[in-house]
Structures are given as C-alpha cells and as structure tokens.
Amino acid sequence: MDNLQKELDNKINNIEKSPSGVSIIWREIMRDKLALISLVFLLLVTTLVYGVSIFLDLDEIVKIDLFAIHEPPSSDFWLGTDYGGRDVFGQLIIGTRNSLTIGFLVTLMTGLIGVTFGLTAGFFGGHIDNIMMRVLDFFIILPFLMIVIVFVSIVPNYSIISFSLIMTAFLWMGIARLIRSKALQERELDYAQASKTLGTPRWKIMFGQVLPNVSSLIIVTMTLNLAANIGLESGLSFLGFGFPEETPSLGTLLSYARNPQTLENRWWIWMPAAILIFLLMLSVRNVGEALKRATDARQRRG
C-alpha cells in the first residue's frame, strides 16, 4: 500500500507541465550561444553605463578645456580629447547611456501608439479601418529623414523630449501595420466571436483578450525596432539634428568624424562609438531573433 502510494506520488510529481512562456524563451536563448553572448553583453553594457554614469560628473566632461585640445589617448584621457578638450571616454559612457535611453523611450512610445492604432483599425475593420489605413499610408510614404530633420530644426525650445516626440511621430507605422493585420485575423477566431456574442464590450475584447494573444509579436517587433531606433538616433545626431553637442550621444561622437582631419588622423574619437553602435545593434537583433524563434514553435531549436 505504502509502496503504491509512493509510486503514485512519484508519478504525480513527474508529470511534465507544458513549459511557460518565460521558460521557453530562456531555453531558446540558452540553445543559441550567440543570443546568450549578446544578452550578457547588453546587460553588461547597460549596467556599466548606467552605473558608472552616476559617478561621472557630466559638467566636468563637457567642460571646454583649451589646453587639452585633440590630445591622443593617454592615461589621463583613455580615448583622447575632442576639439574642445573634452574627454572622449567620458563622453562615450554618457553617450551610450543617452543613446540607449532615447532608444528605449522611442521604442516604447512608438509601440504604444502603433499597437493602439493597429488594434483599433484591425478590430473594428470596415470604414474605420479604411480611413485609418489611408492615414497610415500617407505617413509611410513621407521621406522620414527629411521631415524629421526639418521639424528638429524648427521646433522652438528644442530638447530631448521634443526630439523623441518628433521621432515617434514618424515611426509608429511599421508596428501599427503589423498589429492591424494580426488583429484582423484574431477577431475572426472563435474566442473573440464568442466573447462578442456574450456581450463583452469591444474595448475589453481588444485590450483584454486580443492584446495578450498578439503580445509575443509586439515584444519581438519592439526588440527589433529598438536596434533600428538606436541606429536612427545616432544617424540623426551624426548629421547634427539629434542630441545637441552638450549632451553627448554615440551619434554626436561620430559627428566629429565629419571633420576630415578627425576622420583621417584621430580614429580614437569616432571609431569606439562606431564599433559600439554596431555591437549594440547586432546584439539587440540577436536577442530579437531568438525571441522570434521562441514565439514560433516551428522555428524553435530547443
């Protein structure tokens, strides 16, 4: 009897639960060494720049020191100084922090707008969808870079907030279109139809039931968008239409290379920022691709 009980207990304890979302993602990342390395690298860089920048004095770094213009790398200035005698290494730390912050911010805001827009259009369908899609088509066709540059240069009281708002205003369309087409499929499924029949309010079906079902798609898209947004920010700052020079970012460091002298002879100013942008974008993409596989059972490796 006792033995039987034990055996039963054993059996009950050994019944395999179907793996949860988090454990699937974890397993997928553990299987993909590249994604694992990327994740570790990202966590390391993030904690490092946010941690170290607490102890760095921003005013000290961006203070112009005319006695130390264009110093090559030394023990005082690990990556030399720029044309204003400012420490490049300090700018690199603060700059990475600023670039990451704006990347996260813009990704979150575009995600919020895009998901709401896409869910509404896809879920209501018909005329509402038609009109909303025409609006979206117009935004997509605009020459993004030019419009953003014009707005950046004419907005009064230009600040980091207005910069991220301008970027958001012209970047929400991709995710909106994706979510809309997914929502169009979801609303035909039994669970949404049943809920409708039972009289659940539409907004509750949209945000309470359809949204969780498209959440994996949202997470994957936003991760991939994060990589793109880091690149866009640095590109705009490179041209001089992103972060102002007093607030260093990876892009402003690269913009020093617009001076041919700096580009040719002082690679230590711009090359580290270039490599860092490349590595950041590559690792965010790696993690994103692993997430993408985790959400699609056919592609999983684990």
């Binding site: 990589a227 690269l254 711009w270 974008m281 993409r285």
Partner: peptide, 26 residues
C-alpha cells in the same frame, strides 16, 4: 542589417579614401 549606412560609409571612406587613397574623398 546591423550596420547603419552612415557608419559603413564613414569606415569605407576612412579605409579606401584616406588610408589607401584609392578613391577621391570628396
């Protein structure tokens, strides 16, 4: 996919234009 165009263009200019001098720089 992970390389922004402007960084690639800068590096290409630095290597092929300035270091090797195979192409004009402007």
């Amino acid at each position: 996919f992970a390389t922004p165009l402007f960084i690639f263009a800068l590096v290409a200019l630095w290597i092929l234009g300035f270091q090797f001098g195979w192409f004009p720089t402007g």
